[in-house]
């Protein structure tokens, strides 16, 4: 089975809490064995094995994260259809974590907005079971095109990640500001954490921070580190080495 699948590894990018000055989580991003991009890796995955591969990635990412010393949360990606295709889509993730002693309540499964939208109710029903194990859920690329709004009516994740298109130049873009303010309002009312991802400039960061966002991810703080955990830059705070898992 595995023969036709590409060799892969992971890069890790921190999600930081700027208010607390600490790393909140690392997102595991698939890479080729030699650091090739995620796109290149997925190109080599046969369509028929897509969901099998998706499941495999999670079970491989956890041991590597553990080995590298991840003690905070770990964000892993999940194709929602994987749940329909494989009964073990999420349970295998839990199994591995339990087996090697990685706390399941530290696992955050990220699902892209556009992929759940078609049947949010069913998705919600399917994943809620795993919340009993402490698994957290995040909606990725929120606001990217498909309406995340209706989705929130059916399924309230623990966190959302605001799509980078909304973040880009937000400091000078009125419509994006208005949209993000609305998202913040909705998420505050629903107790959903907001992560601003894809931050590239200090101005983008400042605007979002001033609106009350505390969780950030992006090149501005740290690029993904191939098979290692990079130390992020903490703006407005002296770099808090003590929080870094590797120190």
């Amino acid at each position: 089975m595995n023969l036709v699948l590409p060799k892969f590894s992971f890069a890790f990018q921190p999600i930081i809490n700027v208010e607390a000055g600490k790393i909140e989580s690392f997102e595991a991003l698939v890479r080729g064995a030699n650091g090739e991009s995620a796109g290149q890796v997925f190109q080599q995955v046969p369509e028929a094995k897509k969901y099998y591969f998706d499941e495999l990635l999670r079970t491989e990412a956890i041991p590597l994260a553990m080995k590298l010393g991840v003690t905070c949360h770990l964000n892993l990606n999940l194709l929602p259809r994987c749940i329909e295709v494989s009964k073990t889509a999420i349970s295998s993730t839990i199994e591995i974590a339990e087996k090697i002693g990685f706390p399941t309540e530290h696992i955050i499964l990220e699902v892209t907005e556009s992929e759940i939208i078609n049947d949010a109710e069913r998705f919600s029903h399917a994943v809620n079971h795993y919340r009993n194990f402490g698994i957290n859920f995040a909606i990725d690329d929120f606001g990217a095109g498909f309406s995340g709004l209706n989705l929130l009516a059916e399924f309230q994740p623990d966190s959302i990640k605001i799509d980078m298109y909304l973040v880009r130049n937000i400091d000078s873009d009125g419509p994006r500001q208005a949209i993000v303010r609305g998202i913040i309002r909705t998420c505050q009312d629903l107790g959903i954490d907001i992560i601003a991802e894809g931050i590239e400039t200090d101005d983008e960061y400042q605007w979002l921070f001033d609106e009350g966002i505390e969780l950030f991810q992006g090149y501005f703080f740290a690029k993904p580190g191939f098979e290692h955990l990079p130390s992020p830059f903490f703006p407005n705070h002296s770099v808090s080495l003590g929080f870094h898992p590797n120190t």
Partner: peptide
């Protein structure tokens, strides 16, 4: 919550 957010944005 969703409508409130939409109202704010609009």
């Amino acid at each position: 919550a969703i409508v409130r957010g939409a109202v704010q944005t609009c």
